[in-house]
């Protein structure tokens, strides 16, 4: 196969005619991408908050939990998708989400633990002195102070998930990854370029929006 140049007349990098007639098709892929991302990040957060709190409170849980998810995190997503297919089926949301949620749990647990570890001892003593019970102290004093670290984890988890979802094209899902796969199979550049650019753009938009939420939710942590 000869090397292609950027201004190849046979197949340009973007064929605007194709794009203009395939807007709903691209939109559907983007929508699937967003839905898969939201599920993976939301479920990851729901699982990692209690686990992270437990891991931060108890040394006996901390090492096994971080170790187990750390090992899981090391395993490539394609391997996990392939391993799950015989059990949870091909092209099912479950097969795609189990690895993605697992990865997010690791990222978020670490940040919950780091965030809670960083709460100053004096603040905890003051809360105790004011008569806070442990649960209320956690919800109203410690977690709010850990929020910047948790938000940082959320941003990393969201951006990583958006990139990883393209790989689920191999098991018949993929969101924007479907278009990358189509570009590969048909040697057709437009869907490939559109999907790659949209995936990067989606990640950056999500990152900036989460940063905006963080500023709004944590007025006390705003930097000048």
């Amino acid at each position: 196969m000869p090397a292609r140049l950027f201004l190849d007349t046979v197949d340009p990098w973007i064929n605007w005619d194709w794009l203009s007639t395939h807007v709903p098709y691209v939109w559907a892929a983007l929508e699937q991408h967003i839905v898969l991302t939201v599920i993976a990040v939301a479920a990851g957060l729901i699982i990692s908050l209690p686990l992270g709190v437990a891991a931060q409170r108890s040394g006996a849980i901390r090492l096994p939990v971080l170790g187990a998810f750390g090992g899981f995190y090391t395993i490539p997503s394609l391997a996990l998708f392939a391993l799950l297919v015989p059990f949870t089926g091909i092209a099912t949301t479950t097969t795609a989400e189990i690895p993605l949620i697992g990865y997010n749990v690791l990222i978020l647990i670490r940040n919950v633990v780091v965030g809670l570890d960083a709460v100053p001892r004096d603040v905890i003593d003051a809360a105790d002195g004011m008569g806070y019970r442990p649960m209320v102290r956690l919800l109203r004093v410690e977690l709010p102070l850990a929020l910047p670290a948790i938000f940082a984890g959320l941003r990393v988890a969201t951006v990583s998930t958006i990139g990883l979802i393209t790989i689920t094209a191999v098991i018949g899902l993929g969101g924007l990854g479907q278009l990358i796969n189509q570009g590969l199979i048909e040697s057709f550049h437009t869907p490939l370029v559109v999907a790659t650019v949209l995936s990067i753009a989606l990640a950056l938009v999500a990152d900036v929006s989460l940063a905006g939420c963080q500023r709004y939710a944590l007025p006390w942590a705003r930097q000048a």
Binding site: M1, V156, V159, G163, I180, L184, L192, T196, A203
Partner: peptide
């Protein structure tokens, strides 16, 4: 690193394949 994380590895591989061939 933030930008690197946002790169879809699958897309990057396929684009490299389309540019440089097999």
């Amino acid at each position: 690193s933030n930008v690197g994380r946002a790169l879809p590895s699958f897309g990057i591989l396929v684009i490299a394949f389309q540019v440089f061939g097999l």
